[in-house]
Design a protein around this nucleic acid. Structure first.
Lengths: 313, 313
DNA sequence: GATAGTTACGGTAGTCGTAACTATC
DNA sequence: GATAGTTACGACTACCGTAACTATC
């Protein structure tokens, strides 16, 4: 048994049980892959794949178990290299964060400023995308961390750690009557045209729930993917905006005002996500702790080991 | 990188950083081991071992991380073979249980009877020993499960799952006045010569604590490693016995009586222990569940993944 | 000087790729 | 007949073991 063989079976599984494609992905010959898989099956004494004659059509039951183990082994092999890198150039490296606009624009700047001060040699990369896109970036290894709110929970390979809770506020031009409404009510909000986040994005679920719960039908005239865009349109008088409270800055956002709506909607939790079986460099733990001081290295490791065990195994 | 190299570094670490000995253990040549280790260090870009000239004198910090990962990889490699075996001869195999006398004698018989009925082709092995001995058996792979009470908690590689709680009773010849004592008190017990478990064994800690808490000094005249031996000496009139309640059977133990002492001592918890990163065959999960119905496969897997993360990592 | 580890070198085994062949859809 | 996988074979690599050498205690 060797790593290559494990790589082969994992890749065949990933490529829809197609040996030829797997061989291509692995930059090797198809017969080689085929042969090694047979050799592995021979050694382990069990068929990993179900074959109809020559075609591979399914994964056997033991095969499923074995693929799980094989994937973990390969991840660990990777981890060994990561550890090497970590110590070869301590403090140097790359930190790639996949996140949504609101985080990148309003929450991360302070954290990143402090982080770069502490780790000047770490090259930072910010990737933006929708919640599912940013999760995919981490799953594929293109990013180390994902910071998002609409935390997609059904990725077994992703560990999501709650960082902080936040809620929404209504932004409107300074002279807009809704800014005076005390207390602010859903009925009042529903009276105006609304501009808010795109439904694929942060916490639209909570909003809809709140309105529906009161039998209201909000008049959403425009959706956008980020708070700045929303504020721009609010400034133009297209409607009132519902955005994350943190996305309003009284100093910067001249001509606009905010009326907090935290009592009207269920709060949203922003989470940081990491791949389960991946060894993390020291500065990544440091970054997570800077972002959410409760998440020290020990807590993160415990969370990664525990919780979210997949019942499939 | 290959499995062999990982095996080499792990074995060198295990053999007190002695390459020659490691080579011997692995039935291979010393230069081969040496060379492969250098090759691995080369590939990973970091020294795993600290050398004084040629002698290996310590493990580097990245080395410690790498050894942890390497051990997991090797365990997984093993696991792949285990999975193979499981499915090659389903229902057949070996189940090796390391336990203490009291469990083997009083608690296991029913469970084992049921287990052998369900899995007639599984060869059962019972190993007996002191709590630390039985734990070692599991750690070294000689046994699959350990069932013990004085659950040694400082084995990071062992996951201990609580199964049930039990307490003690006083056994004495049928006509002994202590059997009439209602309620039974520590003071009453302390009045008589006591025969109980050896201190290395089950739950002596709880007993001493109870007596000390009342400023009493029990007169322990004899200690033994198992309940049957204790009862034998009690029968001979050497003193009263303090044993696990389950170790008394009114039908079998003619001439003796028991007075329950559950209110006097802190109860003990019997635990089942398994190695953390080892893949378990289906019938092992079945056995655990037979022994402690709450511990179904899902619970066991969750416990194995979580808890007891070693802060060293 | 004894013990422990590295360098040198030859034999062997096993992996990889090309080519030819075979089976499934 | 096109697509997918296996068998066959030759080249090459890399691992292992012996032997000689070198450094540490």
């Amino acid at each position: 048994m060797n790593f290559q063989q494990l790589r082969y079976i994992v890749e065949v599984d990933r490529n829809g049980l197609n040996v030829s494609e797997a061989a291509e992905t692995l930059f090797t010959s198809q017969p080689g892959v085929s042969k090694q898989i047979r050799a592995l099956e021979e050694e382990l004494g069990v068929a990993i794949f179900v074959r109809h004659g020559k075609r591979i059509v399914d994964v056997t039951e033991p095969g499923r178990e074995m693929l799980n183990i094989a994937r973990r082994v390969l991840a660990d092999a990777d981890n060994l290299h990561r550890v090497g890198e970590e110590f070869r150039n301590e403090g140097q490296g790359r930190l790639s964060i996949a996140t949504t606009h609101t985080q990148a624009r309003y929450k991360l700047p302070k954290v990143i400023a402090e982080f770069t001060r502490r780790y000047p040699k770490v090259r930072l990369e910010l990737h933006q995308g929708s919640p599912s896109q940013v999760c995919d970036m981490v799953l594929s290894g293109d990013a180390d961390l994902v910071i998002a709110t609409e935390a997609i929970s059904d990725y077994p390979d992703l560990v999501m750690l709650p960082c902080y809770q936040w809620n929404r506020g209504v932004v409107a031009p300074s002279d807009h009557p809704i800014l005076k409404a005390r207390p602010l009510s859903l009925e009042e909000i529903a009276r105006w045209p609304i501009i808010t986040y795109d439904s694929a994005f942060t916490g639209r679920g909570q909003m809809n729930k709140a309105f529906l719960g009161r039998g209201l039908k909000p008049n959403v005239v425009l959706t956008a993917i980020d708070s700045d865009v929303i504020k721009t349109y609010v400034r133009m008088g297209l409607g009132i905006g519902i955005v994350a409270s943190m996305a309003f800055d009284p100093l910067m956002d001249k001509g606009l005002g905010m009326n907090d709506a935290g009592h009207l909607f269920e709060s949203s939790t922003t989470r940081i996500g990491i791949r389960r079986n991946v060894w993390l460099r020291g500065y990544i733990y440091a970054f997570v702790e800077l972002f959410a001081p409760a998440l020290n290295r020990h807590v993160v490791e415990a969370a990664r080991a525990g919780g979210g065990t997949d019942p499939g195994l």
